[in-house]
Design a protein around this nucleic acid. Structure first.
Lengths: 188, 188
DNA sequence: TCGAACGATGTCAGTGACTGTCATCGAAGA
DNA sequence: TCTTCGATGACAGTCACTGACATCGTTCGA
């Protein structure tokens, strides 16, 4: 457990999001984040490997949820179906938190470094998904392609959900995009 | 035109690739790259915005070729067909330069920062592709999805081409993956 | 042919992200 | 109470990157 004021990590995350929102990512120094959280710069870097990562603390558990859901999907399902279920489960996690999620996303899209970090998180997710499918006996390149397709659909659905102010149902957007993807590739 | 020794930019690119290969990206300082190219650190940053970008000088022209090919594709073609043609044209550009391309790719996959940069280049390519399709009258979300699918196929085909030591034909790999993607999504 | 104009480079000082090292503090157990 | 240990602070250092100004070749007009 921690001593002094509890939850140093969480305070750093909140301070960072606030400052990135108020004056922008580039205009914020790590020392300022630490100060607002009542800590020092050195302590920031003990909790997060760099200035970007503080915005992506939740990525790990999101990926775990994704992988877990695919692992637990019924064996009979086609790869794309197993993955679709996972997409919808994960979507449900977002649906309730539009405010926080969209604030964070606004910070990310405004800065190239943060967009890069987001992309590698999605790539990591895709790789983990492909691994999980392989563990379910799905061959190559099917596993890899299915994972990439799923992540692409999720990415676009998420963008549209944010653009729409959270009005449209994320799960619904995902289903639409999957159907549309099917139509797109059918032409090849 | 330039004076002093010509082609400062090219010398910096070559020095960087050499040093990144010899001792790794992180263990190389910009000052060392500049010194090997017979220049100073400051001049490096006049040619490239950061230490990563020196490896991605060709990304712009690659994207231009991609966009141009899609723009010139016959009007009758379905979106995915127009994009497929472009994939194959671009693939041809790689086929002859396996040595250089694979050396560069080895450096990139060995470092997270460089993988991030590569991913944002691919994202930019996808966005440009989607834009081009929209200009051809393709609607949303078809344009976006087609572009994402094309880039995903290209990415996986490229990886497999590198893994296979350049033995397998890149164009052939692309065709296989497009067929497989069709099969994958058909299950949904 | 000379000199002004200009673009590419060098020099230097500075900021800020990130790291290694060591001291210190506060909690928990012997 | 003493000891141990994990979290934090303090501090010096490296390196990516930037702004400001000087300098050097080239080029082009007088």
């Amino acid at each position: 457990m921690s001593r002094w004021e509890p939850n140093a990590r969480g305070r750093l995350e909140q301070a960072a999001l606030e400052l990135y929102t108020e004056r922008g990512y580039e205009q914020t120094t790590v020392a300022e984040i630490a100060k607002r959280a009542g800590l020092t710069e050195r302590t920031f870097f003990r909790h997060f490997p760099d200035k970007r990562e503080v915005l992506f603390a939740g990525a790990g558990s999101l990926q775990d949820l994704f992988v877990h859901t695919v692992t637990e999907a019924p064996d009979v399902a086609a790869p794309i179906d197993a993955v679709t279920v996972a997409l919808e489960v994960v979507a449900a996690q977002f649906q309730d938190r539009f405010d926080h999620v969209s604030r964070r996303q606004a910070v990310i899209v405004a800065n190239a470094e943060l967009r890069e970090r987001e992309l590698i998180k999605l790539a990591s997710l895709s790789a983990a998904l492909a691994d999980t499918l392989r563990r379910r006996g799905v061959g190559e390149p099917t596993a890899r392609l299915t994972a990439e397709a799923a992540v692409a659909v999720f990415k676009i659905a998420f963008e549209r959900w944010i653009e729409g102010g959270g009005e449209r149902d994320l799960t619904h957007l995902i289903r639409e995009l999957l159907a549309e993807l099917k139509a797109v590739t059918a032409g090849a």
